[in-house]
Amino acid sequence: MLEAALSILIVVGAIFTLIGSLGLARMPDFYSRLHGPTKATTLGVGSLLIASMIYFSTQDDGISFHEILVTLFLFITAPVSAHLLSKAALHLRVKSLVAPPREVEEADAGECK
């Protein structure tokens, strides 16, 4: 029973990780590519970490919970890196399927002398 649950968690986590990378590989522009890794990959690795936590807690003596730390860390840092990457892409005017709002370009033009 436990083993089945663990197996499902592991396979689902790996599938989400793959979907995240698939999004990175096949989406047409940078801003759409950003979505796969920030959401699907984070959730996939989170699911793997929870599986690892359950496995080591039931395996030998004592519970194991430091996996929570990495999960939390990933869930906090993924949106931060996504925001910074997106900001950098807007700054460099990476080509996009739709035009970014006018405010961005105006502020950016003012910022760089």
Binding site: Y31, S32, L34, H35, T38, K39, T42, F75, I76, A78, P79, V80, A82, H83, S86, K87, L90, P100, P101, E103, V104, A107, E111
Partner: peptide, 27 residues
């Protein structure tokens, strides 16, 4: 901003310098 990035198909992309508006990209 972090919540927007983690939830429905949106990534917060840019905060205006006067902090009045947030530019969000949706897929």
């Amino acid at each position: 901003a972090n919540t927007i990035s983690l939830t429905p198909g949106t990534v917060s992309s840019w905060l205006s310098p006067d902090r009045r508006s947030l530019v969000v990209q949706g897929i």
